[in-house]
């Protein structure tokens, strides 16, 4: 669609400006707060142009085991990605390529599990993890998070596998290649963009997940950044919450996401709508 009249054009740019403003204000305020010295933070009216400082980052590292939590977050997210993408890729290939009675129903049931609210499963999963001795371990968190990511990944990947022309695989099999060889040399290379897309989306979901680490971790062994921010929020100061530290930690969690979005916007969108990857 194109707008032709000047009046419409002005309206259009006004609309865009409002939209961008609403999106950016909270993010701007998050960064500004993280860079504001604590002494200038609690002022009325708010300090729109504070002296910038990086002291808050130092204080954050002094006050919480930031590096340990960061490592946990990364391991948690990467573990969940590896588990979910590998299992989902294999499953998607099976669903797309092998006709077995009832496989459609199985796929449907699998996708439907996306609708199960995580909160509903928390109490029983707690008992499961306890029986497996996996409370407060990254292993346990990876298992439950990987599982959460499976249905969406399978759903998206099935569509993509179906788009890979089957002839090459068939030819390879005729030439005597076995299934792992077919997967490694033909299917995976052909699907690389979609696998990357699914990986990125899963990373975002795992990185942002709060509920599972909150409930299933209790020490620095397994706590992630999302849990850490809820703990910093609990700390009390005479001014109220330590907003400069909350924001500082928030920034460290947000920056990877922002970079990811700028690098892979197209992939994320096409993966989410799994419609128009070209």
């Amino acid at each position: 669609m194109k707008f032709r009249s000047t009046r419409n054009k002005i309206l259009l740019y006004f609309g865009i400006a409002v939209f961008v403003f609403i999106i950016l204000v909270p993010i701007y305020w998050l960064f500004l707060t993280a860079l504001t010295p604590r002494t200038q933070l609690f002022s009325v009216p708010p300090n729109y142009f504070p002296d910038f400082t990086l002291q808050n980052f130092r204080n954050l590292i002094d006050q919480v085991p930031f590096l340990a939590y960061l490592t946990n977050s990364i391991l948690f997210a990467f573990g969940a990605i590896i588990l979910s993408v590998i299992l989902s890729f294999l499953a998607a290939y099976g669903f797309a390529r092998i006709e077995v009675p009832g496989s459609n129903f199985l796929l449907f049931a699998l996708v439907l599990t996306m609708a199960i609210p995580e909160i509903v499963t928390v109490v029983p999963l707690f008992q499961v993890l306890r029986n497996l001795n996996m409370i407060d371990t990254i292993r346990g968190l990876v298992m439950v998070m990987g599982s959460v990511l499976v249905p969406f990944s399978v759903w998206v990947l099935v569509t993509f596998v179906k788009r890979v022309p089957v002839e090459m695989e068939e030819a390879a099999i005729v030439d005597g290649a076995n299934l792992p060889q077919v997967l490694f040399y033909i299917v995976i290379p052909a699907m690389k963009p979609s696998l990357v897309t699914v990986t990125i989306i899963n990373f975002i979901n795992a990185w942002n997940n709060l509920l599972y680490p909150l409930v299933f971790s209790s020490s620095v062994r397994a706590k992630t950044l999302t849990v850490s921010i809820t703990e910093i929020f609990q700390a009390r100061t005479p001014y109220g919450r330590p907003w400069e530290l909350i924001s500082t930690l928030g920034v460290t969690m947000v920056v990877p996401m922002i970079i990811l979005v700028f690098v892979a916007q197209r992939g994320i969108v096409s993966g989410l709508t799994s419609g128009s990857l070209d």
Binding site: F19, I23, L24, P26, I27, W29, L30, I204, W207, N208, L210, T226, I229, T230, F233, I246, S247, G250, M253, V254, M257, I258, L260, V261, Q265, I268, V269
Partner: peptide, 15 residues
């Protein structure tokens, strides 16, 4: 447009 969606929800809540 994607930003609000990729930022950890708990962070948005606190902001």
């Amino acid at each position: 447009n994607l930003l609000p969606w990729v930022i950890p929800v708990i962070v948005s809540g606190y902001v």
